[in-house]
């Protein structure tokens, strides 16, 4: 858990442009091979060397923390479905930090996965409610992000509902008109046979 907290700290720090300042702090607390791999991966990520960042991330343990880092790298490399897949592995592993969730929601929006977007957005909002530490210091920034994403997700939900309604309407119209036409035909045949 401590490893994860340190990783989350570094990620948030990167977001604020203070990676260099916090980097030594990570090592000062006693770096494990996983920490080193993470730091390397972050350094490559800053330089947009995505392939090397992914290669370095292989040394991160445990699996969910590695998945979290890979999700962020993949998102930055614009591989959105792969990013969401890795983010969901991290979430499944119990991670709930705001940076991971933010990337998960954004990736879901990019690939228009409404179900995943709604789920991850819910987790992100929950996370914001209990945010402490460095994240809390930037609460208004996070709130803005969540609001912005929330309107995207809401639009996607509305679009899905509208599309479903249109398909229902099309089916109902078709079945009604076909049914009516066949009904008229049946009636015509019935009266015709009675006459003859």
């Amino acid at each position: 858990m401590m490893t994860l907290l340190r990783h989350a700290l570094v990620s948030v720090a990167r977001l604020g442009g203070s990676l260099l300042a916090l980097g030594p702090l990570v090592f000062a607390q006693g770096a494990t091979p996983s920490d080193v791999a993470f730091a390397k991966s972050e350094a490559f990520l800053v330089k947009s060397a995505f392939g090397s960042a992914m290669a370095s991330a292989k040394g991160i343990h445990p699996e969910e923390v590695r998945a979290r880092q890979e999700a962020i790298i993949l998102y930055r490399a614009r591989s959105y479905d792969a990013a969401l897949e890795r983010a969901l592995v991290a979430i499944q592993g119990g991670l709930r930090d705001e940076l991971l969730l933010l990337h998960a929601v954004r990736a879901s929006v990019w690939i228009q996965d409404t179900e995943a977007a709604e789920y991850c957005q819910g987790l992100l909002e929950d996370r914001l409610d209990v945010m402490t530490g460095d994240g809390a210091a930037n609460l208004s920034w996070w709130a803005d992000q969540v609001d912005g994403l929330s309107s995207w997700v809401d639009t996607m939900i509305l679009q899905d509902a509208e599309t479903a309604a249109v398909i229902r309407r099309s089916r109902t119209t078709t079945v009604s008109v076909f049914g009516t036409a066949l009904g008229v035909l049946g009636l015509a045949a019935f009266f015709s046979s009675r006459k003859s």
Partner: peptide, 9 residues
């Protein structure tokens, strides 16, 4: 080409 060396790309 940058970024297209990662998984999914």
């Amino acid at each position: 080409l940058r970024g297209r060396e990662v998984r999914g790309q």
